[in-house]
Computed example of a mutant assay.
Amino acid sequence: MKNESVLEEIVIDLYRNKLFKIGEYRLTSGKISPYYIDLRILPSYYDIYSRIIDISISKLKPLKFDIVVGIESAGIIHASFIACRTRKPVGYVRKKPKQHGTRRLVEGIVTGKKVLVVDDVATTGGSLEHAVNAVRSEGGTVEKAFVFIDRQEGARERLRRLGVELVSLMNTWFIINVLVKHRIIDEQTYYMIKNYLDRETHG
């Protein structure tokens, strides 16, 4: 219960600092969403970020991994913090192979290692799948991927087909339930996002 209470406080802070925004936003996938999660500037809010990292470390404690690998670009800084706190090596996966020098797609030694893939937000899971495949092509083993927020738009199922479990601190359902519980958003906004999620979850 303590962790859930902390997460509720974090959700409220994310909203008040405009890291969770209500509106009309076009996603990378091209879809129009009634909300947007902007965690790229999250590390600028040290109080919120430190609490998120603390609770992330607690959630990741039971997992076994040798190296933390972030996804370019947002996932790199989060992977770095998690690696530092768990005293593990860190690496990252590029969106595209480096065009000069080593032409690497994966930076960091993952061969023969159990890898935790890290990003900020999971939507459809395309970036996570790319990272998993890249790490596996270098001889790394991936069984878990971690994100702060799961938007619940197919990433969990997509990774499951790859034999990877998606671990998240929270999802959109949790966020909107907290916001309506504390009367930060009204019921009309709640149902607008709920209807969007129902369409994305059930097609």
Rank of each mutant, 00 (worst) to 15 (best):
G23V: 12
G23H: 03
E24Y: 02
R26P: 01
T28S: 04
S29L: 07
K31H: 06
K31P: 05
I32E: 11
I32M: 03
S33E: 12
S33M: 11
P34R: 13
Y35F: 14
I37M: 13
D38C: 07
D38Y: 03
L39Q: 12
R40H: 09
L42H: 06
P43R: 13
Y45V: 03
Y45A: 05
I48W: 01
S50Y: 05
R51N: 07
R51F: 01
I52E: 12
I53R: 14
S56I: 02
S56G: 13
S56A: 13
S56V: 03
S56H: 04
K59E: 12
L60E: 13
P62S: 08
P62D: 08
F65E: 02
I67Y: 15
V69A: 06
G70M: 03
G70I: 04
I71V: 14
I71E: 05
I71P: 00
E72I: 11
E72W: 15
E72Y: 15
A74T: 07
G75A: 06
G75H: 06
I76R: 12
H78F: 14
A79N: 08
S80D: 05
F81T: 01
A83Q: 03
A83Y: 01
C84Q: 04
C84T: 01
T86A: 15
K95F: 01
K95R: 09
K96W: 01
P97R: 09
K98I: 00
Q99G: 11
H100Q: 03
H100K: 04
H100R: 05
T102M: 05
V106T: 11
E107D: 12
G108H: 05
G108I: 14
I109K: 10
V110Y: 04
V110R: 04
V110T: 09
G112S: 10
K114T: 12
L116C: 07
L116M: 08
V117L: 07
V117T: 00
V118P: 07
D119R: 03
D119W: 04
G125Y: 07
G125W: 06
E129M: 13
E129Q: 13
H130E: 13
A131I: 04
A131F: 08
V132H: 01
N133W: 00
A134N: 05
V135I: 14
R136C: 06
S137C: 00
E138V: 02
E138Q: 13
E138T: 04
G139V: 03
T141P: 00
T141W: 12
V142S: 15
V142A: 15
E143V: 15
A145R: 09
F146T: 02
F146A: 07
V147N: 14
F148C: 06
D150G: 06
D150F: 11
E153D: 07
E157I: 00
R158P: 07
L159G: 02
L159D: 02
L159Y: 02
L162R: 15
L162S: 13
V164H: 08
E165T: 10
E165R: 14
L166R: 07
